[in-house]
């Protein structure tokens, strides 16, 4: 997979769950080194990972949002107040000054893995 441009350091990949744990179109929460993440499997089968914290709703709930596409961007809608976050950039569509952190994610040997700075 391609990594977001701002990630330059070497990555350490952490195993999260078997690939089958996230069916297409759904998301799950994951705890990675004390951080809460939301991992989604998009309509085309590809994975995305962002922080689980919704900075506008102020709760760890993004993994429970509905995912989809808006004008070609892959997004998750927060289950709290329905703002959309771009899954590739973390930018909030409704309030573009708000971002959520994004994380590298991949499938390796039947497992989903998250990349963290080594």
């Amino acid at each position: 997979m391609t990594l977001p441009a701002h990630i330059t350091t070497d990555l350490q990949w952490i195993r999260v769950a078997p690939c089958t744990a996230i069916p297409t179109g759904l998301g799950v929460g994951a705890l990675i080194q004390g951080q809460q993440l939301a991992i989604f499997r998009c309509g085309d089968g590809s994975l995305r990972a962002i922080s689980n914290y919704d900075p506008i709703g102020a709760a760890h709930v993004l993994a429970r949002g509905l995912i989809g596409q808006i004008r070609g961007q892959r997004v998750v809608a927060s289950p709290l107040y329905k703002q959309h976050y771009d899954l590739d950039t973390g930018r909030c569509l409704e309030e573009p000054q708000v971002f959520v952190p994004i994380f590298p994610v991949r499938e390796e040997a039947g497992y989903i893995e998250i990349g963290v700075a080594a």
Binding site: P23, T24, G25, L26, G57, A58, A59, H60, V61, R64, G65, L66, I67, P79, L80
Partner: peptide, 22 residues
Amino acid sequence: DTPMAGLQDSNDYFLANLQRDG
């Protein structure tokens, strides 16, 4: 049921009402 689950609003998905703290 499998193909339906991903279509549900969050409340329906967990068959409960989400509160402000999650």
